[in-house]
């Protein structure tokens, strides 16, 4: 009995030990490399946070927490604050989401329910290609093509229509420059549209056919099924998709820098030139020498942008993944 087992063992021992021979040396190295690269990504994020915080610390020490609430940005007197940029970042990103949202709902409806099968893929890919166009190209297109159009055809009628109204008028105050918050928001809307749409489509396609067919069975129209079955089913993930769009819009740099007008003043108007955190960093960096208070203020702005983006993106991810897990 023992002998047979031993015999079987020794009979099969050679190929196994050979295999183990290569595995014994190579496997620990390989597995270590896999773990190391996973841990590397963790360390990378930690390093980014630490470096931005460290870089911006002198500004925080100089201005205190007032840095966040101060609307000052004066390179001459070296008085810096983040309020104008935080406001501009949120304002332009929210305009973008408000504009992109109905478009995404419509395009997702088209792609999942209306489009004939042969059209689905090409149209879906074309919408995704809008996400592939580099930020700087949106900037040039915005600056040379969209801004003049808005100055000539969009702003004057809006100013005529709403400019004199008591409260809403403030939104439409100022000369029709073309560049400004609204234009930045519109360009951002085009840029985040593909991200939101893609995640909408992915969510809507995961709705169990049985649910939809039950609704069709009691006589619902395509739109009613979309509105009352598909969208409520994917609600959580779709909110996550919107947050992802918001997160993307918050940090866009080049496109915004071209069209927002780069003015560090606070204004409630959609037409007023403004600045976002990212556009300010890109614009002011060349005039911020190493060791200057301005440079550390820019790094502090970067840290604030990171914190805002992190919160929005983490929230988005939690909402999107909650359904999957």
């Amino acid at each position: 009995m023992d002998a047979t087992v031993d015999g079987m063992r020794s009979g099969s021992a050679e190929p196994i030990s050979k295999a183990k021979g290569t595995g014994r040396i190579a496997d620990p190295i390989f597995v270590t490399l896999l773990w190391a690269s996973g841990i590397f990504v963790l360390i990378l994020l930690g390093l980014i946070i630490a470096e931005l915080f460290k870089g911006g610390l002198p500004a925080l020490q100089h201005f205190g927490l007032d840095f966040i609430w101060s609307s000052a940005w004066n390179p001459v007197t070296e008085n810096f604050g983040a309020l104008v940029m935080i406001y501009g970042t949120l304002f332009s990103a929210i305009i973008a989401v408000i504009v992109a949202l109905p478009l995404s709902f419509g395009i997702a409806f088209f792609l999942t329910e209306i489009a004939p099968q042969p059209l689905k893929r090409p149209v879906g890919v074309a919408v995704q290609l809008l996400a592939a166009v580099p930020s700087i190209i949106y900037g040039m297109w915005g600056f040379f093509v969209v801004v003049p159009l808005i100055a000539a055809y969009v702003q004057p009628p809006l100013i005529d229509l709403f400019g004199d109204l008591p409260v809403i008028g403030a939104l439409f105050a100022g000369p029709p420059l073309g560049s400004g918050m609204l234009t930045a928001g519109l360009i951002l809307a085009v840029m985040i549209l593909p991200f939101i749409t893609a995640m909408f489509v992915e969510t809507l396609e995961s709705v169990p056919p049985m649910l939809k067919e039950s609704a069709y069975g009691i006589g619902a129209t395509t739109y009613e099924v979309y509105k009352n079955v598909s969208v409520p089913y994917g609600k959580t993930a779709m909110v996550g998709a919107i947050m992802l769009g918001l997160g993307r819009a918050l940090g866009e740099t080049m496109a915004v820098t071209f069209v927002i007008g780069n003015a560090t003043r606070l204004s409630a108007s959609l037409f007023a030139p403004g600045a976002t955190i990212a556009s300010t960093i890109a614009n002011e960096f060349p005039e911020a020498p190493i060791g200057s208070l301005k440079l550390t203020s820019l790094l502090q702005l970067g840290f604030i942008l990171f914190v805002i983006s992190f919160i929005v993106l983490a929230l988005s991810r939690a909402l999107v993944r909650s359904r999957l897990d």
Partner: peptide, 11 residues
Amino acid sequence: NDILLSAPSIL
């Protein structure tokens, strides 16, 4: 990784 994928590239 999901955060890094969408984090502002300027940072």
